[in-house]
Design a protein around this nucleic acid. Structure first.
Length: 404
RNA sequence: GUGGGUGUAGCUCAGUCGGUUAGAGCGCCAGAUUGUGGCUCUGGAGGUCGCCGGUUCGAUUCCGGUCAUCCACCCCA
């Protein structure tokens, strides 16, 4: 038997409803916030991700589905959504056009990792990217939008926030940090020793306990921000407090991708295993110019659909649709004709085979149909159809041409 | 990439200290009710015991390997 590749799942049966419900809910809310749908290719030039996500990240370093296509191009399946949207933004010259552009998207992402709870090789994200608005109010608004989405889905969460500074203050802080880290280098774990050179900020996020103990005295980003970054961060904190959003400051929160500046945030849930981040995002004012566009401030986020699937509270479902069946084979033409007629305005399940009334009712019940309509011997002779409402239990016989 | 757990019916799992015909619950199909769903009762269908090899008179059971899957590390949504 051929089965799906490791870490790749079919979405069917009961899960497909949750999946679609999440996308529909998030899309509806994003549109209310002025976002427009964008679809970008799943496959992009590898260089796009190397330059945006960053060579030092694990995503680019070892998790990409990368290959050379038949034309000799180095391509890879997108490991995340932002890079492609930014590429599209630049390619379509929206950076030069100016103004504000807000996009939402959803679709599969691919990372070659060892699967575990909440982590797949092919997974789905819903994301938003806002271009051209540099105000921290936009950062706040985007967090508020995620809150709206999770509230609408009935999901509990806490928010973690941090600021990653800007070209003004980050380099100084970074240097400071590197110096401090060199001081304790010997005692840090192997990964952290490597990170000092490649991506020192990530050391702060190390999960190794001994490292965390050593890092207690290390400089904190939010205490070393320049005036503008500091002011934005304080404004964000005040706004979150004013709107009673449950958040905590997390100086160790370093978004995994290199392009973030200033605001970084994460929504986490304690109910889904070790992979607790259910949404993450932040501001990335420098990415557009990194990818050869005109410098444009931007902020965005993505949420992991599979990670929130089991947390979503689905709305009550009521019986819906019509079941059509027959007890005399000659009625099949009528059944097919009625099915097509009714499908103009409702869901119709048809059973082509002759079955007992009991079997039909049982099948209709199991499908969750509202009505069960059957043509049996008597009805066939009379040109009628028997209809039962499975909720009210009301039943009647009516002429075929009166059925609706 | 590393570590650990688990592979027996469609699903959840028992079980076999190595022995003839491998079980339960749920689900499915049928009947009880010659045309009335959900409840009940009765019956039935459904299994290469993950795969390959080794030990053995004999392996679903023991051993080795392999594959798959789950959980965790790393990292991230």
């Amino acid at each position: 038997m051929i089965q799906a590749l490791r870490g790749m799942k079919d979405i069917l049966n009961p899960d497909n409803e949750r999946f679609i419900h999440i996308i529909n809910t998030a899309s509806r809310i994003a549109e209310r916030y002025g976002y427009q749908y964008i679809e970008t290719p799943l496959l992009e030039e590898t260089a796009l991700f190397k330059r945006s996500v960053g060579e030092s990240s694990d995503i680019v370093g070892k998790e990409m589905y990368q290959f050379i296509d038949k034309g000799g191009h180095d391509v890879c399946l997108r490991p995340e959504g932002t890079a492609g949207v930014v590429r599209a933004f630049i390619q379509n010259k929206l950076d030069k056009k100016g103004g504000i552009h807000r996009f939402y998207y959803h679709g599969p992402m691919f990372r070659y990792e060892r699967p575990q709870k909440g982590r797949l090789r092919e997974f789905h994200q819903f994301g938003c990217e806002s271009f051209g608005e540099g105000s921290v109010y936009e950062d706040f608004t985007i967090i508020l939008m995620i809150k709206d989405i999770f509230d609408a889905l009935g999901i509990g969460y806490t928010i973690k926030i941090n600021s990653l500074g800007c070209p003004e203050c980050m380099p100084g802080y970074r240097e400071n940090l590197v110096q401090h880290l060199h001081g304790i280098q010997e005692e840090l774990c192997e990964d952290c020793q490597r990170r000092i050179e490649t991506n020192p900020i990530r050391v702060l996020d190390c999960k190794v306990e001994s490292c965390q103990n050593l890092l207690k005295s290390s400089p904190v980003i939010v205490e070393n921000l320049c005036e503008a970054c500091d002011s934005d961060f304080n404004t964000l904190v005040k706004l979150l407090e004013a709107h009673s959003l449950p958040f905590e400051r997390d100086p160790k929160l370093v978004r995994g991708l290199d392009y973030y500046t200033r605001t970084a945030f994460e929504f986490v849930s304690s109910e889904i295993g070790a992979q607790s981040a259910i949404a993450g995002g932040g501001r990335y004012n420098r990415l557009v110019e990194f990818l050869d566009g005109k410098s444009t401030p931007a902020v965005g986020f993505a949420l992991g659909i599979e990670r929130i699937m089991e947390l979503v509270k689905m709305p009550e479902v009521s019986r819906e649709g019509l079941y059509l069946g027959l007890m005399e084979p000659e009625a099949i033409e009528t059944i097919l004709q009625l099915a097509h007629q009714q499908r103009q305005h409702e869901t119709v399940y048809t059973e082509y085979n002759k079955k007992s009334l009991k079997a039909h009712l049982k099948a209709a019940d199991r499908l969750g149909a509202k009505r069960c309509a059957i043509i049996g011997e008597d009805e066939l002779k009379a040109g009628e159809i028997w209809v039962k409402d499975l909720e009210t239990k009301e039943e009647k016989r009516i002429a075929i041409d009166q059925f609706n």
